[in-house]
């Protein structure tokens, strides 16, 4: 079941085996799918299905035991500036201000100081944190920290945004707001988004396509196209049908 040919991201037969204390563990088995340019894809699955492992392999932070990840036809073996990465627990650099955090990825990019400042100011504005540019992360709420992390990932102007349960650590109200903001940014910038979550409702709300994973071993159960207009409301009957369909697979 390879949809992968010619896609922006191609994940081909990716497997991962760990040597655990009680023998080898098959964390991922033959994961195979593709993501088209501009698409919003959610990977959803229960905890322990290997989605974080898959995220780390996609990001180039960990090698796969078998198979490969291609980004625009190039094999991913280490992190690349073509990908902007957002982690679950924000992981801001606490010793840097919001502005410095957002600019972090630009120290390696060949960007003039003026261009860097312009871009950083624009992004801080985009994620709604104007006025907090010189604050340290300690004085920000969880939602604000995740906005900074998003701006930091966007600063390097990546073609692909790779996000690992980015809204898992904030309260429900903030999560809903951040989801809406992420969709706005996605539509505004035309980025491709690959979004890992364990929250089925979140996946149905956000994704063009949902990759449903199961565990033992971590593998794809099914890939579901979500054919709903945005903004989506969870009270719609059709929303509920997608929700149930994904739920049954997990």
């Amino acid at each position: 079941m390879s949809h992968a040919d010619g896609s922006m991201v191609q994940i081909e037969g990716v497997s991962k085996r760990y040597d655990g204390d009680q023998g080898p563990v098959q964390a991922l088995e033959d994961v195979d799918f593709g993501v088209e340019t501009g698409e919003f894809v959610c990977i959803v699955g229960p905890s322990g299905c290997g989605k974080t492992t898959l995220f780390r392999i996609l990001a180039g932070l960990e090698p796969a035991t078998a198979g490969e990840v291609l980004l625009d036809g190039q094999r991913v073996t280490e992190p690349t500036p073509e990908m902007g990465i957002v982690f679950q627990e924000y992981h801001l650099f606490p010793w840097q201000t919001v502005r410095e955090n957002v600019a972090f990825g630009l120290q390696k990019a060949e960007v003039s100081a003026a261009e860097r400042d312009r871009r950083v100011d624009h992004l801080i504005d985009l994620v709604g944190l104007d006025g907090f540019a010189d604050s340290y992360p300690k004085s920000l709420s969880g939602g604000m920290k995740q906005r900074v992390a998003l701006a930091r990932a966007l600063a390097i102007d990546p073609a692909l945004l790779l996000m690992d349960e980015p809204f898992g650590a904030v309260d429900a109200q903030t999560r809903e707001m951040l989801q809406g903001e992420l969709l706005d940014i996605w539509q505004e910038t035309g980025k491709t988004v690959l979004f890992v979550t364990h929250d089925v409702e979140e996946a149905v709300k956000l994704a063009d396509r949902i990759v449903v994973m199961g565990k033992d071993p971590g593998s794809i159960r099914q890939v579901i196209d979500v054919d709903l207009d945005r903004p989506r409301s969870r009270t719609d009957a059709s929303f509920g049908r997608y929700y149930e369909r994904v739920r049954e697979l997990i």
Binding site: I85, F87, E89, F104, G105, K108
Partner: peptide
């Protein structure tokens, strides 16, 4: 290790870069 991963995800690599940008400030 998570902060180091963030730095790596932005293309920082090698002992010197990681130590200077992340390890010493942290």
């Amino acid at each position: 290790e998570d902060l180091l991963d963030v730095a790596r995800s932005f293309g920082l690599k090698g002992d010197l870069e990681l130590v200077r940008s992340v390890v010493i400030p942290a």
